[in-house]
Every structure is written in structure tokens, then in C-alpha cells.
Amino acid sequence: MQIFVKTLTGKTITLEVEPSDTIENVKAKIQDKEGIPPDQQRLIFNGKQLEDGRTLSDYNIQKDSTLHLVLR
């Protein structure tokens, strides 16, 4: 499925993911596309910070959902 990740600069990254993917996996995909190390990434969905060990389906993230990427 496709999800979107919006950065603070207003750029939107499109990712191909599975609901069973962990947040860690998603961060690795963002690193592949953008070169941002996962330990600098914080992903936010519906105002909640997403934890590495959880999956997209844990957070009820579905296709065409938009996550927000904050760098630390």
C-alpha cells in the first residue's frame, strides 16, 4: 500500500509499505529515499509519536495515510 510522509519543509515522500511493516522498517525506507538516519527521525500520526517496535496496523495506518516526519 502507499503512504505519504510529510516533512517540515513541506516536501511529501511517497512510500510503498505493508500494514505489517514496523515503524523501524518505515524509517529505513525514508533513509533509503532521503538519506536521513533513522535515529534522527520521529514519525507522528494523528498527533501520536510512533514507536519503532510497533507496526503500521497497530496504529491503524491505512493506505494513503499521511505521517509527519520531525527531525531531532
Rank of each mutant, 00 (worst) to 15 (best):
Q2W: 12
T9N: 03
E16S: 15
L71R: 15
L71P: 07
L67E: 01
K6V: 04
E18L: 04
L50T: 12
Q31R: 13
Q62F: 15
V70D: 04
D21P: 01
S57P: 11
P19E: 06
P37H: 14
I44A: 15
I44Q: 15
Q41S: 15
S57V: 03
E24Y: 02
S20Y: 10
T9E: 09
S65W: 11
K27G: 01
P37Y: 03
T22P: 10
L67P: 01
K48L: 04
I61G: 00
T55N: 15
T12K: 12
P38K: 12
D52F: 04
F4H: 03
K11H: 11
T9I: 05
E24L: 08
T22Q: 03
T66Y: 04
T22N: 13
L50V: 07
V5R: 00
E18Y: 04
G47R: 06
V70K: 05
R42W: 15
Q31F: 11
V5M: 12
K29D: 10
G53K: 03
T9S: 12
D32T: 08
K27P: 00
L71Q: 05
N60I: 12
K63Q: 11
L71V: 12
G47P: 01
N60G: 12
M1I: 12
K33I: 14
D52K: 10
N46H: 10
K6F: 06
D64H: 13
T12D: 05
D58Y: 15
Y59W: 10
I3H: 00
V26K: 00
Q2V: 14
Q62M: 10
P19Y: 05
D39L: 11
G35H: 14
F4G: 10
V26F: 13
D58W: 10
R72V: 03
P19F: 06
N46F: 13
R42H: 15
F45K: 02
T9W: 02
G53P: 10
L15S: 01
E51V: 10
I61S: 01
P38L: 05
G10S: 07
G35F: 11
E51F: 08
E24Q: 02
R54E: 13
D39W: 09
A28S: 12
T22L: 07
Q41V: 13
Q2A: 11
